[in-house]
Amino acid sequence: MKFKDFDPDKYKAVVLPGGFSFGDYLRAGSIAASTETMKKVKQMADEGKVVIGICNGFQILVEGGLLEGALLPNLNLRFISKWVYLKVGRKDTVLTKGFEKDIIKMPIAHAEGRYYHSDAERAKRLAVLYYAGQDGTVDEKYNPNGSLFNIASVANEEGNVIGMMPHPERASFKLTSLDGVTDGLLLFRGLRKW
């Protein structure tokens, strides 16, 4: 099915995966955010349906105003591809409701992931995942891209719309995952508890 033909009434959930929509022209995710398709996705979000954005999908959700804040170029202006530890902050979202772990491991691969919000308190309220050390310590030294408060993921208040820079789908299969980690799969399984 072509993305333009997609009928939001037929689905309960939508996942915007990573990639480089429209070549990241202007700003990552900004042109995709202004498409007719995204209006339909926004409609789904407003109806309380599940909307998940991963990497470029997160950038599209932020650019489209489905999630608060902004994602700026990484502070070192490089594409960063590596595995990171993440502290789970909120457990009231579609992917983290009833989540048992507090620290998970997933890869990141992006050039524009520096999360920013003009209201610090609001950012803390919405943050779901933080870049952290192996023991869950959230510190600037574990911040790969200069994100405010090491934020790697935010959701809306209701928790049905969530975006994240890390890639859970790349941490879902033992054979292709670093050290056989499947924390990403655990996140997706959280959908059952929603």
């Binding site: 202007l26 900004s30 955010a33 202004s34 804040g69 902004a70 700026l72 920013y116």
Partner: peptide
């Protein structure tokens, strides 16, 4: 209207 810039940043 076309969000050529992001007024947040």
């Amino acid at each position: 209207e076309g969000r050529l810039y992001n007024p947040i940043v």
